[in-house]
């Protein structure tokens, strides 16, 4: 069975890589198979990990006591679980043009809850902490605890932050010193993009190496 799996994997890998030459039926077969399997797997997983434990089981537990022939053990409070389930069902209103307005209620709850939870935490994570991280090294400079290279890094970071933010500051015309600062900002952005691109290349090459390693050692190893 493992051998069969290795051969299927090798065949599909070669099908996908055949696109490097040009588009062909083998590539399309593997591509469609991948999409089909991914969607099918996702749906089944969503049903088992999402729908059944969070919608069906609570729903059944809530209505079971009121089912004819089943002894009533739980109270009416169990029915409260039906409220969030009903709210979720309102999303299906989008399927009918006459009932699209029903989506507004669960959407309002979702957006309201999301904003309430996220905005303070986002501000703390992405604004306050980052601002602290940018200016904190200057306290160390003041205390004389930062190395000469650390001082260079701290100054470079502040210059980079100020210049890059200036580039995205469109409330004043970019002329004179503002233009000069924004041009330095472009330089920092280019360095950032270059670094991101380099790391992306490293990641993509790693994927290729793993596939080649599989083909040379695991697959061809079954033949020779």
């Amino acid at each position: 069975m493992e051998l069969f799996g290795i051969w299927v994997t090798a065949f599909l890998t070669l099908c996908i890589y055949s696109f490097l030459y040009r588009d062909n039926p083998f590539y399309r077969f593997a591509e469609h198979l991948f999409i089909g399997v991914s969607v099918g797997y996702g749906i089944v997983l969503s049903i088992h990990q999402g729908f059944i434990p969070f919608a069906w089981d609570p729903f059944w537990a809530a209505v079971k006591p009121f089912w004819p022939g089943i002894p009533r053990e739980a109270g009416w409070m169990g029915l409260l679980k039906l409220i969030p389930i009903a709210m979720g069902l309102l999303f299906f209103g989008g399927l009918s043009p006459r009932h699209t307005w029903l989506i507004r209620y669960p959407s309002a709850i979702l957006v309201g809850f999301g904003s309430g939870i996220s905005i303070p935490l986002m501000l703390q994570t992405f604004i306050f902490e980052q601002t602290r991280g940018t200016i904190e090294p200057f306290a160390a400079i003041n205390a004389g605890t930062l190395s000469p290279w650390g001082i260079v890094e701290a100054v470079l970071m502040v210059v980079g932050v100020v210049c890059t933010l200036t580039y995205f500051f469109f409330s004043v015309e970019h002329r004179g010193p503002i233009n000069w600062l924004s041009k330095v900002g472009i330089g920092f952005l280019m360095i950032g993009f270059g670094s991101a691109f380099g790391n992306t290349v490293m990641g993509r090459v790693a994927l290729l190496i793993q596939r080649v390693d599989f083909l040379l050692n695991d697959w061809l190893g079954t033949i020779f």
Binding site: L121, T125, G192
Partner: peptide
């Protein structure tokens, strides 16, 4: 980082793919 570190003070570390490395450095510095 946003919901576990900021809210519950849980210490976070990360292992990421090459594409994400640059995005992670600001969090490392802070």
């Amino acid at each position: 980082i946003t919901y576990a570190n900021a809210q519950y003070d849980l210490r976070i570390a990360s292992g990421v793919t090459g594409v994400l490395i640059s995005q992670m450095y600001p969090f490392l510095q802070t």
